[in-house]
């Protein structure tokens, strides 16, 4: 699903955020991305969603070489990815329903189709009764679940989450992580950046450990030779 081939990323002003990172996350797998603050976790996820471009190396998503993807093709790549953010990034002047519907509206789905899929996604995250609510009236955990519903509503093959439990209490964090496992069980590839080490350790999925832009354990998800 995702293959990093000796990827390096240097921001215009600053040192290398990633250096020679190589790994392969097979389709249907679930993995965590860990490391200290500033290790390069967010940068790695942004490269996959083409929010940043690699300085060196090759990056493949679903067989497509993303280092060669032109500007006009970027939206199509992003539609294959469900992104979840630590700060939710919801539209606060739209209802929960409209927020979750956004990826479907962008992709040009039919009206009836949209209503059905949005309700299914909201049902999965347990917010079916909040579809008319504005995000501002929801708790942090509920907002995060709206973000997750939005990420999965168009059934993307890949879910990327950047510290999805950063602001949540332990119990809520566990619920959210279980939700990700559920999606993974039905075939979605999942990659989650997190520094909730205790929680991650208990779940037992492979971990990519970053330290100052380098992968500490390249053997865990080594690319096939």
């Amino acid at each position: 699903m995702i293959r990093f081939d000796n990827i390096s990323k240097r921001y215009p002003e600053g040192r290398d955020a990633l250096q020679g990172v190589s790994f392969h996350l097979p389709a249907g797998a679930m993995a965590f991305l860990t490391g200290h603050s500033g290790a390069g976790k967010s940068t790695l996820l942004k490269l996959i969603a083409l929010l940043e471009r690699a300085t060196r190396g090759q990056l493949f998503l679903d067989g497509e070489n993303l280092t060669r993807t032109g500007k006009r093709k970027v939206p199509l790549v992003r539609r294959k990815i469900g992104m979840i953010f630590q700060n939710y990034r919801l539209l606060f002047d739209r209802t929960v329903f409209d927020n979750v519907a956004l990826p479907l509206v962008i992709a040009g789905h039919r009206h009836q189709d949209i209503a059905r899929r949005v309700r299914a996604a909201l049902d999965k995250v347990g917010l079916l009764d909040k579809e008319r609510a504005l995000p501002i009236t929801l708790s942090g955990g509920e907002q995060q679940r709206v973000g997750i519903a939005r990420a999965v509503v168009n059934k993307p093959p890949l879910l990327l989450a950047d510290e999805p439990t950063g602001n949540l209490d332990p119990e809520l964090s566990r619920d959210i992580m279980r939700l990700f496992e559920e999606f993974n069980r039905v075939g979605v590839t999942v990659l989650i950046a997190s520094h909730d080490l205790d929680l991650i350790a208990r779940m037992g999925h492979p971990q990519l450990r970053l330290h100052q832009g380098r992968l500490l354990n390249p053997e865990v998800l080594a690319p096939p030779q």
């Binding site: 969603a49 006009r72 992003r78 539609r79 992104m83 539209l91 956004l102 990826p103 962008i106 992709a107």
Partner: peptide, 16 residues
Amino acid sequence: REEIEITKLIGATGAF
């Protein structure tokens, strides 16, 4: 601005 960023993030085309 925020709305534009978010919709771009989710894969909206320039035309959209």
